[in-house]
Simulated assay, not measured.
Amino acid sequence: MAQSRAFFTSRVDAWLFAIGPIAGLAAASVALPLALQSHAGLDVAVAAAVVLLTLLLPLWLLLDTNYTMTEDELRVRSGPFRWRIALGDVREVSPSRSWISSPALSLDRLRIRYGAGRSILVSPREKQRFVDSLRQRCPAVLVTGF
């Protein structure tokens, strides 16, 4: 029986909304005064690019972090970053509150262990539906901590 795709958006902790503007203001307060003092057009352009990236990357991550399960893989997307994990390689899923950088916008996370000692942290908004979908596609997966 063919299974359809299952799509999950990331849960987002409220405090993350403050990081983008704070990072942008910090970058602007350092980069722009230095660039304007140099009177060089290239310095101003570089400073503007740094500030723009500092503002746009967090926004891109907030708007485009999601997880898709197909019949044979888990696709993780977070802004410009992508992961493809073969469901046959998934060994274990468990809750986590790790602060390690990951494609998860909440500290209410799931650690997915796969392959030879690899893992990824995700934070699906519908955590139980995500785990159920994973179990359906990977009956041998070890689910702990629930």
Rank of each mutant, 00 (worst) to 15 (best):
I112C: 04
A45D: 02
L34A: 14
A48R: 11
L62H: 09
Q136M: 03
S96T: 10
A26C: 08
T70D: 02
W60R: 07
T54I: 06
S38C: 07
S4N: 01
I19H: 00
Y114W: 12
T68D: 03
L121D: 09
V76D: 00
P58I: 14
V122R: 05
K127E: 04
G115N: 05
L57Y: 14
R135C: 08
A140T: 12
P33C: 10
E73A: 10
G41Q: 04
G145P: 03
E71V: 15
T68G: 03
Q3T: 07
Q128T: 13
W60F: 10
S123W: 06
A140Q: 10
W99L: 10
D43E: 06
E71A: 12
L74T: 04
A49P: 00
K127G: 00
R129T: 13
Q3I: 05
A45V: 11
V44E: 06
S123C: 04
L32M: 12
T68I: 10
R11G: 02
L105A: 08
L142M: 11
H39L: 14
L56S: 01
I100M: 15
L63K: 15
F81K: 10
R125F: 05
L34N: 05
Q128L: 12
V50S: 02
A47W: 01
D89Y: 14
Q37I: 09
R84E: 09
A40R: 13
G145R: 12
A104Q: 04
P58H: 12
P139M: 04
P80W: 03
L105F: 11
S96R: 11
D89C: 08
Q37K: 07
L110F: 01
D72R: 15
T70W: 02
W15E: 06
L53H: 05
R135A: 03
V143D: 00
P80C: 11
G20W: 13
P95S: 01
W83A: 09
